[in-house]
């Protein structure tokens, strides 16, 4: 799609490209998902980290929406005394996990961290996040090309982003 011969051929090319992508996506989910992932793989998802709300961030990162799943165990404290350091971990029994991401709903930027889980790595991660105030922590697990989520509210007594 590098040559620009005129408006019509270019548009046809784009349409063809779009159709191809659509076919891939519909035909075979795992294979359809892998090229997209490979493209996103080496790059830092700058745009997703700039999104202010959670839904936009999930969209920017994965381009689709998640459904809640009870196969994800999100471990976070009920009450965090210090919002600057909130220990949060996720384990899941889902198969073919390719990535795990953490979102904090009411932080200035919702996306906190995103982890890529290559083949052979256990689908579990523990880390520490900052939370501005009492809000929901959402863990998104991408497994077999689909998104699953788990949510937990954490009460924060002292915010982690104050000045």
């Amino acid at each position: 799609m590098t040559t620009t011969t005129g408006p019509l051929p270019t548009r046809r090319l784009i349409l063809q490209g779009a159709a191809g992508v659509a076919l891939l996506g519909l035909g075979n989910l795992p294979f359809g998902a892998s090229p997209a992932l490979a493209a996103a793989n080496d790059k830092y998802p700058e745009e997703a980290f700039k999104q202010k709300n959670e839904a936009d961030a999930i969209k920017a990162l994965y381009g689709k929406t998640a459904e809640p799943s009870d196969k994800i165990k999100l471990d976070a404290p009920e009450i965090a005394e210090n919002g600057g350091v909130v220990p949060i971990s996720v384990t899941t029994s889902l198969d073919k996990v390719t990535s795990i991401s953490f979102f904090v709903a009411e932080n200035p930027f919702a996306l906190a961290a995103s982890y890529r889980i290559p083949d052979g790595t256990v689908a579990a991660v523990a880390n520490r996040l900052k939370m501005a105030k009492t809000t929901n922590v959402v863990a998104i697990v991408e497994a077999d090309g689909k998104l699953y989520s788990a949510t937990k509210e954490v009460k924060v007594t002292v915010g982690g982003c104050g000045g």
């Binding site: 980290f49 991660v125 880390n127």
Partner: peptide, 15 residues
């Protein structure tokens, strides 16, 4: 790991 600013100071990670 791709991190934003919401990861705590002196980050810790386990996998």
């Amino acid at each position: 790991a791709d991190w934003g600013t919401a990861v705590s100071k002196d980050p810790y990670i386990k996998f």
